[in-house]
Structures are given as C-alpha cells and as structure tokens.
Amino acid sequence: MGRFEGGQKDAAIAAALRVSVRQVERWRRSWRELGEAGVLSKGSPGGSRLGET
C-alpha cells in the first residue's frame, strides 16, 4: 500500500515484486475500492490438506 500511496507506477511495482503489471492493476483497483482490506492476502486457494487421510 505504501507503493500505491507513494505514487509508484504499476510497472515499477510489478518489477520489484516480480508479478505481472496486470496483477498490480487489479491490486490497485481493489485498494482504491476497499482500502487495505482489498489487498490483504486471502491465503492459499487450495485449502488445507492436513486433515485428509
């Protein structure tokens, strides 16, 4: 969020984090619409397998 607030360009953020510019655009839109909650990690989409046998 500091990068967004600091006015860094999407391409610079993407390069620093080694993700696509498109992903940074999605994060920025979520940040604008929902604030910090919009960019917090939601964890692994695969779910836990610890209980599986």
Rank of each mutant, 00 (worst) to 15 (best):
M1T: 14
L40K: 12
R3D: 01
R26Y: 08
G6H: 10
E5Q: 10
E25M: 15
R28P: 06
M1E: 14
Q8H: 13
V39W: 00
A11I: 05
R29Y: 08
E36K: 07
V24K: 00
R26A: 12
R49M: 13
G38M: 01
G2C: 12
R32Q: 14
F4L: 08
S30M: 12
K42H: 10
G46L: 15
G46H: 13
R29Q: 14
A14R: 01
L34G: 01
F4A: 08
V24A: 01
I13S: 02
L40S: 04
S30G: 09
G38V: 00
E25G: 14
E36G: 05
G7W: 07
D10C: 12
A14V: 04
G47P: 11
G2F: 12
L34P: 00
G51A: 13
F4H: 03
G47F: 12
E52L: 11
G7D: 10
G38Y: 01
Q23M: 15
K9C: 04
K9L: 09
L40P: 01
Q8W: 08
R28W: 05
W27T: 00
L34V: 04
E33A: 09
E25N: 15
E36R: 07
G46D: 10
I13G: 02
R18Q: 14
R3E: 02
V39G: 00
Q8N: 12
G7H: 09
K42A: 15
L40R: 13
L50P: 00
E5C: 07
T53I: 04
W31F: 13
R28N: 06
V39S: 01
E52M: 10
G38A: 02
S20I: 10
A11H: 10
G47W: 12
R29M: 13
E33Y: 00
V19A: 05
E33K: 05
G35I: 01
A16D: 02
E33V: 03
V39I: 15
R32F: 11
A11Y: 10
G7Q: 08
S48H: 04
A11N: 06
A16G: 03
L17P: 01
E52F: 07
G2E: 14
E52Q: 09
A15R: 05
L40C: 07
G38K: 00
A12P: 03
S48M: 06
W31A: 02
A16E: 03
L34M: 06
S41W: 02
G6W: 08
P45W: 06
R49Y: 10
R22F: 15
W27G: 02
R26I: 07
S30L: 14
R18T: 09
A37H: 05
F4M: 08
A15D: 05
W27Y: 06
